[in-house]
Design a protein around this nucleic acid. Sequence first.
DNA 1: ATGAAAGCGCTAACAT
DNA 2: ATGTTAGCGCTTTCAT
Lengths: 427, 427
Amino acid sequence: MTPGGDDQPGAVSLEGLDSVLSASPEREAEAGRASTATLYDVARLAGVSTATVSRVVHGQDRVRAATRARVQQVIEQLGYVPDGAAQSLSRRRKNVIGLVCVEHVGLAPRQYDIESMSLLFYDEVLRGVEARLRDHDLSLLITYLREDKDFDWVTAPGGPLTFFPRLLSLSGKVDGLLIGEGIVPTPVLARLAERLPVVVIAGDPDERAADVVTADNRAGAAAIVTHLVADHGRRRLFHVDGPPTAPDAKQRRLALADVLRAHPDAQLIGSYDGLFSVQSGEDAAAALLASWGTSLPDAVVCANDQMAIGVLQALTRSGVRVPEDVAVTGFDDIFVGGLVQPGLTTVHQPMRLLGEQACARLLERIAAPSLLPAVQLLPTELVLRSSCGCPRGTATRQLVQPTHVVRPADGSPTPTTDGRRAAGAPV
Amino acid sequence: MTPGGDDQPGAVSLEGLDSVLSASPEREAEAGRASTATLYDVARLAGVSTATVSRVVHGQDRVRAATRARVQQVIEQLGYVPDGAAQSLSRRRKNVIGLVCVEHVGLAPRQYDIESMSLLFYDEVLRGVEARLRDHDLSLLITYLREDKDFDWVTAPGGPLTFFPRLLSLSGKVDGLLIGEGIVPTPVLARLAERLPVVVIAGDPDERAADVVTADNRAGAAAIVTHLVADHGRRRLFHVDGPPTAPDAKQRRLALADVLRAHPDAQLIGSYDGLFSVQSGEDAAAALLASWGTSLPDAVVCANDQMAIGVLQALTRSGVRVPEDVAVTGFDDIFVGGLVQPGLTTVHQPMRLLGEQACARLLERIAAPSLLPAVQLLPTELVLRSSCGCPRGTATRQLVQPTHVVRPADGSPTPTTDGRRAAGAPV
DNA sequence: ATGAAAGCGCTAACAT
DNA sequence: ATGTTAGCGCTTTCAT
């Protein structure tokens, strides 16, 4: 800091630390675990009561400057740090919220694979949550649940209480829970929500047991299918669906039906039940070629980008031209969608925002537990590239008109939907 | 959107929502917070002591079947879940470990950007950690530290104890700490390590204050530079360095020097101090063109893939051909490196494994706190594509011979290095 | 401004 | 096989 001389920045901060570190190195080894100093130790050494130390630690004002200084001195000398468990117990407040990520079966990420891009969903959500949390001095406890391993409760004996043992036990360690995806059945959710605030991320918008924050999948999917049908005149559609347990897949499926109903000239010539993986997409394309090889559909609507990419690859490999012969669309807007050839037309899902809003809602509910459960739909964007039939080089994103949603009259200030990005901005 | 017809997607979802709102609003308000049941409640209702309930909860055997059944019945009836804070306090064990992710300045991820690929580092690490944890019934507390915001301690008043307030306070909530990247200065690390087990991920291998688990950056970087010099005869090298605070950048820098020393015919004609971002790479290329436009280097060695991609893009944009005119290499092996043109030659860093091993080590140390700090280097792989001068279509990965490392004689069974992937496997 | 003391909910050693 | 009880480390009301 001081320019010139041997007084380097590093050296400066070291001085203070050295004294701290000097505390008997041998002692260390002997001690094994150096039983950490407690509030009592500090109080005793400073000649004050624990109440005073607590006040000092929390920067309260009812302490004389001299006392405060003395206590602080001892705190540093002892390297005292409050024990979180004791604080939580005493405060009846853990200051921790839990994030539960539910992994779909068959999505175990392989390294070096497009598949691992699916990580981005929770990773982005995580970022969003963290961003909201960091101002509040709350910690984040994260847990991954596997659809296959952690959900055997369905057939397990022992009654309701043994359901989701990991979820249950988690609920004892946090002040609130953020649950990704709506695989958790409503009764279980209700059970949890009874014990503590719960917000479901990307869950079923029809969920009644807990708050839900999700992308407006139905409007997004409707928009992209409508684009295919109305703007590109694609009539014969093939659907590559997502896993039955995925709520977003359900909404996208419903949207497809909506659009077909609105466009009687268009028809669904077939569908394939995929698993959200690239492999699923390839399998779907294979099935498609096998059954409709002679008269391919005009467009393949995929429930997510990974599958769309799989379809794209498999189709191209078989000499089918996209979008000339068949259009292909995805959903989610994962990064690679912009890199493949042709560029993948898809719907952008605001994952990060999902995390932020879900977290915000959870904090609201922790503050006011009696809020009624509500659904919050975040607007999506239609991302037009060229796999839908738009000209090569197209790269447009436009906000999808949000679904109209009614919030319960609980006086909550949270907006129903929340657009953060301007419509029509270039990619 | 939907041309004609009143059956819009939006209207449809309203149906479900309406019913959600109907759920007895009064009841809710009245309930407020349903003060959760405690062990005592269960004990009282079951007519047993708390000890017995505790035994039942933990599946101990010293309980008569009839009693157990009765207790379990009450537990379910009450929806009892043990309070984590109380358990932790009583057991002197939190069963929580912390993961601290340090973000470099200027790396705030922008959406839709290659930059956000940098997320993959911690995301992969996180996966690895979680994989190790899930068998142990431990939870993971995750925290992101920003180099700019959370590190103002350097100039902050108040002495050593106010250093890294977030880290300190975190240390009161966990049984052990995994710290990503080695930005945390040794004295602080020492301070922490004194209080609880600490393992640094991707830290400086010269760190003595705590365990370190990191990729063998030096060997990896040496391998790739040697490839450039020895296999492709590139002589005039330009280096795009990483941030000064990044330990891996340091190792890679050292490796470059090592190779240059071993190959006197090769020389470093210049370098650029980057920040690990794509933008840095572009800036580096601009600087390069400005200063050496007339006699470009034979190769640009970049400290990570993001910068290499920036260089690649900027160079190509300026009409410089890669690798014909200039070779470019990266480090880390991020996904997009395989998608750009030409394919990026780089070094693979086993991020997931890093997380796994670091976590494993942490658990070891929690079990045996007196273990001496050790360094564990995980082997890297040389990923050959075509940006180095290898023929188009090249896609080879080969294990880099690990650096020899001496472990302290603490009898730890942990191997020094750990190879998981076979050498020479196709990408 | 400071101190005394009663919990917070659970565990585990020690009875019985 | 089951019960008693003394903590775990901190917060906080109520005195002083």
